[in-house]
Design a protein around this nucleic acid. Sequence first.
DNA 1: GGTAGTTCTGGGAGCGCTCCCAATCCGATC
DNA 2: GATCGGATTGGGAGCGCTCCCAGAACTACC
Lengths: 338, 338
Amino acid sequence: MNLEDIARRAGVSRSTVSRVINNEPYVSDRTRAKVMAVIQEVGYAPNPAARMLVTRRTHVIGVVIPRELITVFEDPYYFPTLLQGIAEAAQERDYATLLWVGSSSEDEDRLYERVLQNRLMDGLLIASATRQMGITRRLVEHHIPFVMVERPAALEDQINYVSIDNIAAAQDAVNHLIDAGRRRIGHITGSLNNSDGLERVEGYRLALRRARLPYDPDLVVEGHFTSRSGYLGMKALLKQGVDAVFAASDTTAYGALQALHEAGVRVPEDVALVGFDDLPRAVEANPPLTTIRQPIHQKGYQAAHLLLDLLDGKVRGPRHILLPTQLVIRASSGANTF
Amino acid sequence: MNLEDIARRAGVSRSTVSRVINNEPYVSDRTRAKVMAVIQEVGYAPNPAARMLVTRRTHVIGVVIPRELITVFEDPYYFPTLLQGIAEAAQERDYATLLWVGSSSEDEDRLYERVLQNRLMDGLLIASATRQMGITRRLVEHHIPFVMVERPAALEDQINYVSIDNIAAAQDAVNHLIDAGRRRIGHITGSLNNSDGLERVEGYRLALRRARLPYDPDLVVEGHFTSRSGYLGMKALLKQGVDAVFAASDTTAYGALQALHEAGVRVPEDVALVGFDDLPRAVEANPPLTTIRQPIHQKGYQAAHLLLDLLDGKVRGPRHILLPTQLVIRASSGANTF
DNA sequence: GGTAGTTCTGGGAGCGCTCCCAATCCGATC
DNA sequence: GATCGGATTGGGAGCGCTCCCAGAACTACC
């Protein structure tokens, strides 16, 4: 069933049917209605391949997620939520979403090789990359439209991205601890090959400086956004002696909490704790976790809309969008706002 | 850059280049090498739209995930892991993966409408559906190849699926509790509009019968695979008085655990608990959770391979694949195998 | 009633591939 | 050295759509 068939049944020409389908002007109401009726009746949908071939547009966007990120790093809540936001935007604009997930058996470079070889996408969404340099440079050089969902490590002024202001958010978290009277504040970092992780360290540093508190490298333990690194990091910090800890993610904070419980340290009386993400579990933690809420769904939603705006020529890049975060105060930080 | 360009540069015809690209016989080694060299040199990749148009194959499979399932029901660990398995198989067979996630603003029917209208896919993977009847019937009628990742509610003998033997697995879980001497065993179910949930109830029932224990409807509380329903379900069961509980998912078990802790009930001394899934968190629970391990990644991987085998004509449907599960005994069930 | 301008309609060309058939080449065989 | 059959190569046709241009139909105006 093709355009010509519909045309014959409706007693018009191929061109007219095409105009109706693409909602173009210069079709009389009578003709339009007649054609629509036939289309409805036979359940016709145009052949996307034929359309792509001539328009050079696929109406497909690609989402690239390096393997480790989907389940290992961070909380598994992150990517489903991000994908949900992306899918919602794509649906609104009538685009389909092609998913590229790195697999265990290949490294990131191979993944990008496959993505670049596949010419089925109008643009790309890069959902967090660990070794972005290589890929982003190539994308920029090849003029492939793309949006990153995190601040790029390089070429920032040439790259579109949607992120949050990690520095300000981390400062909020640490300021909150300082305001609550804490003075020896430790930080269990996220992955430091990633700008989210790096910026949170920076925010931590700035907050201490603003309060004229010393920056003690021994109070900063490198982690990987994981629960395990939170557990180990907390053990290290307990040896150093701290009265508060800012964990780079809620997942990290859970690990820390476990270490604190095992050590018989009271939270928040002895050590106050602040996380980052506001995962659904945060409110169920014991004690409920003070944390930074970040709009994960919105990140995906806005990044997708930005990409589609770029593709439609509605906006011109590079664009940088920073979404707001919010400090959510619960019991773990010891502020009596419960 | 198209076939003709490559042909000109290599001094051969369009047809020969096509043969090389598609790895067809009847090309001399010398010619093949020459063409390959040119392709490498200019970084040529064939236009997928043109290819699709004539072959009527897209080399794209669709994955459909109704909205609620991606983040709300079950643990968010489930879908990332499933997708990972699917993506891995697709990659091995050189297929791309189109993702269809229901959005909040539309219901399942609308999602399926969009999927059916989009003709960009050779086949579909249905990753759990709540109201499958409508869609599966239409897919079967339209002869669209598809594989479900759960046992279908209807038309079972006409539908390809990959699942686990939920009945046997649930029996294992309950038998384990019975073997440990428990006699008043409750069950917090999963969603009962879903075969995974229904079959686990059935397994629970069969295990009791085999042990000649009475089936008491008051000891079965309907849940939704969620933590909250586990919490509420456990509270209800505590009123009934139980010495063990089989929760339909680990997430449900976490909720139950919280209710038990709050009530000051000792686990496993007073109430033994078994979950289902073996999420990474299960081992970190307090006490560590006895549970049924199910191969989520494998489910996705095998389902995708089955779909591709069907598409390639390597196998003929309908095929039913049941993957093995495994009882993982930890402290929460009170068996001293710690 | 003629003309100009607009709205509407139809059909050729071509997007870049694969498929098919015909033509050519080549070594072996008699 | 002619013949044969398989290996190799080339080019026309056509997939289903959009784009473009030409022509028809209609309207408004003088």
